[in-house]
Amino acid sequence: MARVIRCPVLVRTAVAAAAALLVTACSAGAGPDAPQGPSTAAVSTARVSHTLPDDPVRMVLPATGAETRWTQGLYVFGQQVTRAAAAECAREGGFALPEEIPLAFIRYFELPDLDFIRRHGLRASAEIPGPAPAAGTARTGTAAEVRRCRAQGTAAADALRGTYAELQGRWFSELVSLRQDPGTMRARRALPGCLAGQGVQARDEQTFMAVAQTREHRAAPADLARTEQELGRVYADCMRPVEAVRDPVRLRARAHFVTENAAEVRALRTALLPAVHRAERRYGLRMVFPTP
């Protein structure tokens, strides 16, 4: 089992081609908007899984919060390939790369994984198994050497991402457009009342996340784990009626998207998992996914 790690509640990042998607970035180190390092208090134990979906479409084009666990794993795997290929290049050159922060699963605000959040809190995820520290005392690489090896790492990951990134980017853009679905908008109207009934004054999800971050920053160290878990419970319980409406909308939209992009989806189904397995063998990796 892996210990729970913490992350900033809300940041923006580019995910494939859909920079408009909001995500929750989880890291074992301080994130972009974290003023201090992570808490060491555990909420509960999060685990990782190696079980792949029955259809890679569910990993690349997620339509539910639970499916994003596979999407998170695929994103991290690309980063692992980048680092492994760069490290191999450096070993061959007889030098060391600068140390980097631990890799992190990225949670998708547009597709909240309510079961995970309710159990572990808003900012918790599973720790990603990392490689053993490199032995020896290799010299530090020059700036040019480091750039060269990191470019090789990026190229190795791009070969994998090329099997899905463009299609995934279009799907994420489609997800953003579903914010205006009439049924979803009606379901969201009940959210402020539900949150208020749980002691949180917030007009929408974004406001709730800001309130949650403030409460967590103000919590005493001994109370942080309990605060995080309670906020996760409130969010998950109040968002369930919204997700009960949104999940069918997203699933129908994905079915239409798959039909409209049938040739690219066939190519994805043919190429992605073999590319993953080749990279696993080549760099001694194994894809992992967060799981409650």
Results as ranks from 00 to 15, higher is better:
residue 51 T to Y: 13
residue 176 V to D: 08
residue 180 Q to T: 15
residue 223 D to M: 04
residue 272 L to D: 03
residue 158 D to Q: 11
residue 241 P to N: 09
residue 271 A to P: 13
residue 229 Q to A: 09
residue 61 L to K: 13
residue 93 G to T: 10
residue 30 A to N: 02
residue 62 P to N: 08
residue 18 A to S: 11
residue 30 A to F: 00
residue 114 L to K: 03
residue 192 P to D: 04
residue 213 Q to D: 15
residue 64 T to W: 08
residue 19 A to W: 12
residue 239 M to W: 14
residue 73 G to Q: 13
residue 183 G to P: 02
residue 263 A to C: 10
residue 244 A to K: 13
residue 190 A to H: 02
residue 189 R to E: 15
residue 282 R to V: 08
residue 93 G to Y: 09
residue 186 R to E: 10
residue 259 T to N: 15
residue 47 R to T: 14
residue 121 G to V: 02
residue 99 E to M: 10
residue 227 T to A: 03
residue 75 Y to L: 06
residue 178 L to N: 03
residue 141 G to K: 06
residue 95 F to L: 10
residue 265 V to W: 00
residue 138 A to I: 12
residue 280 E to G: 01
residue 50 H to S: 13
residue 49 S to T: 15
residue 36 Q to G: 14
residue 259 T to M: 11
residue 99 E to N: 13
residue 13 T to W: 11
residue 16 A to E: 15
residue 204 D to S: 13
residue 233 R to A: 02
residue 218 R to V: 06
residue 104 A to V: 15
residue 165 A to C: 07
residue 279 A to V: 09
residue 92 E to V: 13
residue 278 R to Y: 09
residue 240 R to D: 06
residue 275 A to W: 04
residue 97 L to I: 13
residue 191 L to P: 09
residue 87 A to L: 02
residue 235 Y to I: 00
residue 5 I to L: 06
residue 210 A to W: 01
residue 227 T to C: 01
residue 38 P to F: 00
residue 14 A to E: 13
residue 77 F to Q: 08
residue 112 P to C: 04
residue 67 E to K: 05
residue 114 L to R: 04
residue 288 V to Y: 02
residue 11 V to N: 10
residue 116 F to I: 00
residue 24 T to L: 02
residue 206 Q to F: 02
residue 138 A to M: 12
residue 212 A to E: 04
residue 149 C to K: 03
residue 229 Q to R: 13
residue 86 A to E: 00
residue 279 A to P: 08
residue 9 V to W: 05
residue 166 E to S: 12
residue 115 D to F: 07
residue 28 A to R: 01
residue 4 V to T: 15
residue 80 Q to S: 07
residue 100 E to W: 14
residue 268 L to V: 09
residue 207 T to I: 07
residue 196 A to C: 12
residue 251 L to S: 11
residue 227 T to I: 03
residue 8 P to A: 06
residue 233 R to H: 05
residue 143 A to G: 10
residue 231 L to R: 00
residue 124 A to T: 10
residue 155 A to C: 00
residue 37 G to C: 05
residue 264 E to G: 08
residue 71 T to Y: 14
residue 245 V to Y: 00
residue 53 P to L: 07
residue 291 T to L: 09
residue 232 G to E: 04
residue 137 T to A: 14
residue 59 M to T: 00
residue 72 Q to N: 11
residue 31 G to C: 02
residue 57 V to W: 03
residue 107 R to Q: 11
residue 127 E to C: 14
residue 242 V to L: 09
residue 234 V to P: 07
residue 80 Q to G: 02
residue 82 T to K: 12
residue 231 L to F: 00
residue 201 Q to S: 03
residue 223 D to L: 03
residue 170 R to L: 06
residue 177 S to L: 15
residue 109 F to E: 15
residue 171 W to L: 06
residue 139 R to E: 01
residue 155 A to T: 01
residue 85 A to L: 09
residue 59 M to R: 00
residue 218 R to I: 06
residue 155 A to N: 03
residue 25 A to K: 13
residue 1 M to L: 10
